[in-house]
Design a binder for these strands. Structure first.
Lengths: 230, 230
DNA sequence: GCTGCCCAGCATGCATGTAACATAGATACA
DNA sequence: TGTATCTATGTTACATGCATGCTGGGCAGC
């Protein structure tokens, strides 16, 4: 029974062993505690996550579907490196999807107004910036963009976009870090925030071309600071 | 979702039990021998495919990633119905991707010329039409479009597009069938072929706007004849 | 020193056993 | 009649055993 009365957490009751394994492995990969080219074995992972090999295998299968690992027969699960090509593909696809979303959203009156949603995400970004909470900042950033895409109502495109952002996570939070890759760059954060505000403003004014342009500029900036590795 | 995920590389020699199960289940669903809303059980499928439940489970996981089934905990695998919304999403996404592909392909000289490839697919379509081989016709049609998208060199978009065409398969080969849904409509076939030729011609002439228009018209036709069910 | 072969060790792919859980239908009761 | 409860049945979720296949390293032969 849910004594709090609050809406139940993500998994209504109990996260399955497979879910735990999935979250664990994915977290380790994204946090770069598993390096690209590493060969993971089901047995080790099973022990680490405290389950048997079966749910671990299930998790690896899902991760393979997402392109994070590749299952080599009788060898193990290879953590795939992020290639330059993949990075370019991700950014190009983001450009395509976000531009499309902006235009579609402005092509007719939305059922629920987008403005307040964007505002709330912007507010979260501001708060995270002041609190120097990079993780929260990145999350709010992602939610902002996702809200625009989700407003298209196209579930295929929306779930594609979600997977894009996840892949991008693997490329590091670097675009918010300074040159050393270890500290947050406040200037970059402020600039990013301003870019988001511009996107919201153009959308609110229903200026499609300007919105697409603002999005393009934002992605240009993101891309130019991407790929710096410590 | 398996937006990223092209189906894992095909084993060169021996198809694994999981692959066999995957092919079997998918085939049954696409051929509509499993109806939407059906609840499949791992045990039954395992017996049908002549393997144990483990590889069947693996196959169901992959199919869930592709959006063909949904695994209900402790219940079974639900064959998802194709909704009107999904159909619209697929077509909208095809429109977006194919228009993008046409423009990108024309934006610079390709490393390998696209023309001959398109010609060969067109030839295959013609041959299939004369042989009244609908399956081959549909395959050549799909390859034609896929070639354009693949020419972008963007693997994310290409594998998304692949999954789109597979989803569309579920909506039936109906757009090539006549009103009864049982016989091939030669007129529709000829018209489709002409539309493809027009797309090739505009691409060859490097007229981007015209190509996008031709693609849009083609998809309009496809969409207008879609959704007829027997 | 170099090449090729062989084998031990490790990791998977699949089969199967077990227990828990969700549902449907029967049953008891107001 | 309508409703709540109980139980029988079917199905998964997970654990584990077994056989197979891949790989790396050592050793014989040159």
């Amino acid at each position: 029974m849910n004594t709090t009365g609050a809406p139940p957490a993500r998994p209504p009751v109990a996260p399955s062993a497979a879910d735990r394994a999935y979250a664990y492995i994915k977290g380790e990969i994204l946090a770069r505690r598993f390096d690209p080219q590493d060969l993971l074995s089901e047995g080790q992972l099973a022990e680490a996550v405290g389950a048997s090999r079966t749910p671990v295998r299930e998790a690896l299968l899902r991760l393979q579907g997402e392109g994070l690992v590749r299952l080599l027969p009788k060898r193990g699960a290879l953590v795939l490196p992020v290639t330059v090509d993949e990075m370019a593909d991700v950014m190009e696809t983001r450009r395509l999807v976000e531009s499309f979303a902006a235009r579609k959203v402005l092509s007719h009156q939305p059922s629920v107004p987008l403005g307040p949603v964007l505002d709330s995400h912007l507010e979260a970004m501001r708060a995270a910036m002041q609190a120097h909470d990079v993780a929260a900042y990145v999350r709010a950033d992602r939610d902002f963009h996702l809200a625009i895409v989700a407003a298209t109502g196209n579930e295929i495109i929306t779930s594609l976009y979600r997977s894009l952002r996840e892949r991008q996570l693997r490329m590091g939070t670097v675009n918010l870090l300074d040159g050393t890759g270890t500290h947050v760059d406040p200037a970059r954060m402020r600039a990013t925030l301003a870019e988001h505000e511009r996107i919201r403003d153009t959308l609110r004014a229903r200026r499609a071309d300007a919105a697409v342009k603002a999005i393009g500029a934002h992605l240009d900036h993101a891309e130019s600071t991407l790929g710096r590795r410590s």
